[in-house]
Nucleic acid binder design. Structure first.
Length: 638
RNA sequence: GCCAACUUGGCUCAGUGGUAGAGCAGUGCUUUCGUAAAGCACAGGUCCCGGGUUCGAAUCCCGGAGUUGGCUCCA
């Protein structure tokens, strides 16, 4: 509810959003215009546009997501005006509001560089300050086409617009084809910031011309903008690449090659714990663990169709005794050959076979990103071979396992049901039953999901889980896919009750995605403060003076015997310095030992994110910590 | 792969044409101290690589590699 005091002193109460029709019943149109003209806090947007005609007037406040979008979309027009001032002759392709701001794709006569960004930002601020109105006008298609005959982008946009009348918005010297709505005047865009430059293809098509994309963000107030920038700063501190260096978790080395992760001892320990948990949980759920070779004769990838369909992402063949071999890009063919090494009865199914399978794929150099997008990665892969009747239960089991994993790690995720793509194999009936089965399970479990229309793989539909990184970017993580292709190509069959051979249904799935991406995400999720069971170093024992060293060794020994990863800091530094180092290394438990503790068999406990917790009997503490690890407890606070 | 930027000791970063710098980390010595940095000293660099311009290049130009932000594509 917004209350506006009108120029005549009356109060006008508005619910947002609201249409002209709504107002019409309450006040005169003339009065409405006055209300809108009055610069009342909370009054929104697109006023000039709609009062000229009889379309709906919408009152949208800046503190709603819709209002923020309008502010940002208007800011993109202001960005365009600023660029036009500084780079006359620039053509403008497309400039929408996005998640955290807005951008404009431009085709400038000279290259826009990072050094230009502050200038552009200044120009934008000037435009905002000038507070000129956004004015809507309409042209017929023919007039619009004539007016923009030299601008291929606008012509294209006009061609894509619907109807015979095309709306334009003008503020200052800049006019742009646009559906609106916009803020009434540029001043309503309170605070703008030009963020960065990037390349982007026209229509997102790599074969089209590459445009310059200028990113910015806008908020209705400077305070909100500052808060947003601060959040970005904090996100940078969570970046797994930054923490990975601080905690000495992993690296890539140019001499090894880009996108190939070297797991340092600390990172390897985290991975070891994740893998141990993963194996334990799989065995509990009736899975069997497989190992298959890292290279294989090319013949298998011809048969699987990978060479044909994924040839671009496979590494070049190597010659072994005159035959071409390939590094494996997928684990499935190996698993299938294991299946096919025997005749199987329906009585044996389902087989739940899993492998922590390392695969290598050629990912374009520009797409590599820390541990989240790499060229060699270990999938927590599994292939379930089952009968059609078993599909739903098996999918359900997979989702159950996946949810259990995510819960254990305290991870939030988003589920997507990806349906049949344009290029695909299989019959309509096959796709319908398969997609239906996936949907049914999602609904049976009450899992929220979005539909990714046409996002399936050519061989079947899938359920994708996306992990979110510190900056809110989504990364494809766990996936469950039905496959109509490989059972055909490899003749993967079982003998049914009827003594006839039937094709198995094959489910590909991961519940973490890959070790690299999952652990990279985990680093950001915990900001390096891992739960005790995952922490590479769990306990560090710090001596106050040399007199406590012998006792310290004893305590470390006790911790280690209880299975805890403990070490001793017995250097001659002051205790404050040792604590500082332990905290910076993000060791979850620091035990401080001095004369006092030595005599009583205690330790002064300091826990990460909690601080000094006072003294405890060492024997009790060791049991408690071991228990916390066994339960894979999440930290209290995160 | 495409567009743009960046690359200086282990790390974070100064240094814009005239003999390579700081802090932290490391090593040695001193210090034995109670909850986030003790002191002194020492050591450490093909300024990413290759070519060019120049009397002279970390610095300017060209090519390559790697990284970063996006695009396209993907676990």
């Amino acid at each position: 509810m917004i209350t506006i005091t009108l120029p005549d002193g009356k109060a006008l109460h508005l619910d947002a959003p609201m249409t002209l029709a709504d107002i019409a019943g309450k006040i005169s149109r003339d009065l409405a215009k006055k209300a809108l003209a009055a610069d009342v806090d909370g009054v929104a947007m697109d006023l000039t546009a709609t009062l000229d005609k009889d379309a709906a007037v919408r009152f949208i406040t800046p503190d709603t997501p819709e209002g923020l979008d309008i502010i940002r979309h208007s800011a993109s027009h202001i960005l365009a005006e600023a660029i036009l001032q500084l780079f006359p002759g620039t053509k403008f392709a497309y400039g929408p509001a996005v998640e955290d701001g807005f951008y404009y794709d431009v085709d400038a006569p000279t290259v826009i560089t990072a050094e230009d960004l502050p200038k552009i930002e200044k120009a934008m601020q000037k435009i905002v300050k000038a507070n000129k109105p956004f004015v809507r006008h309409e042209l017929t298609r023919a007039v619009a086409e004539a007016q923009y005959k030299n601008d291929e982008y606008k012509l294209d946009n006009i061609a894509r617009a619907q109807g015979d009348v095309i709306s334009f918005y003008t503020q200052g010297d800049f006019s742009d084809l646009c559906r609106g709505p916009h803020v009434p005047t540029a001043g309503k865009v309170g605070a703008v910031k030009v963020m960065s430059l990037a390349g982007a293809y026209w229509h997102g098509d790599a074969s089209q011309k590459q445009l310059t994309r200028v990113y910015g963000t806008a908020f209705s107030t400077k305070e909100e903008l500052d808060a947003h920038l601060k959040k970005l700063e904090e996100a940078k501190r969570r970046d797994h690449r930054v923490i990975g260096k601080q905690m000495d978790l992993f690296s890539t080395e140019p001499d090894v090659g880009p996108g190939l992760i070297l797991w340092h001892p600390n990172g390897s320990m985290i991975r070891h714990e994740v893998e141990a948990f993963w194996k334990e949980e799989h065995i509990k759920r009736g899975y069997q663990i497989l190992y298959t070779p890292h290279i294989a004769s090319e013949a298998i990838y011809k048969r699987s169709g990978h060479l044909e369909n994924y040839g671009d992402m496979m590494y070049s063949p190597m010659d072994i005794d005159g035959s071409p071999y390939r590094v494996k890009p997928m684990n499935c063919p190996g698993h299938i050959l294991i299946y096919n090494s025997n005749v199987h009865s329906y009585r044996e199914l389902p087989f739940r076979w899993c492998e922590l399978g390392t695969v290598y794929r050629y990912e374009p150099s520009g797409t590599l990103h820390g541990m989240l997008r790499v060229r060699g990665f270990t999938q927590d892969d599994s292939h379930i071979f089952c009968t059609p009747e078993q599909v739903e239960d098996e999918i359900n089991g997979v989702l159950d396992l996946m949810e259990h994993m995510m819960k254990t790690f305290g991870y939030k995720y988003k589920a997507f049901l990806a349906t049949r793509p344009a290029k695909s194999i299989g019959t309509d009936a096959q796709w319908e039953t398969a997609t239906g089965a996936l949907r049914a399970v999602l609904e049976r479990r009450g899992m929220p999901y979005e539909v990714d229309e046409g996002g399936g793989v050519f061989y079947g539909p899938k359920i994708d889980i996306k992990l979110v990184d510190a900056l809110g970017r989504e990364w494809q993580g766990p996936t469950t896919q039905l496959d109509f292709n490989l059972p055909e190509r490899f003749n993967v069959e079982y003998v049914g009750k009827d003594n006839e051979r039937h094709k198995v249904v094959m489910i590909h799935r991961t519940v973490l995605g890959s070790m690299e991406r999952f652990i990279g995400g985990l680093i950001e999720h915990f900001a390096g403060d891992f739960p005790l069971w995952l922490a590479p170093k769990q306990v560090r024992v710090l001596t106050v003076t040399d007199a406590a060293i012998a006792y310290g060794r004893e305590v470390v020994e006790k911790l280690r015997r209880a299975g805890l990863r403990a070490d001793l800091d017995d250097r001659g530094d002051k205790i404050g310095a040792k604590i500082r180092e332990g905290e910076l290394a993000r060791v979850p438990v620091l035990l401080i030992l001095g004369e006092k503790e030595k005599d009583t068999g205690e330790a002064s406990v300091r826990r990460r994110l909690q601080g000094d917790l006072g003294s405890r009997k060492v024997d009790e503490l060791v049991l408690e910590l071991a228990q916390e690890v066994r339960e894979r407890r999440l930290p209290n606070k995160n």
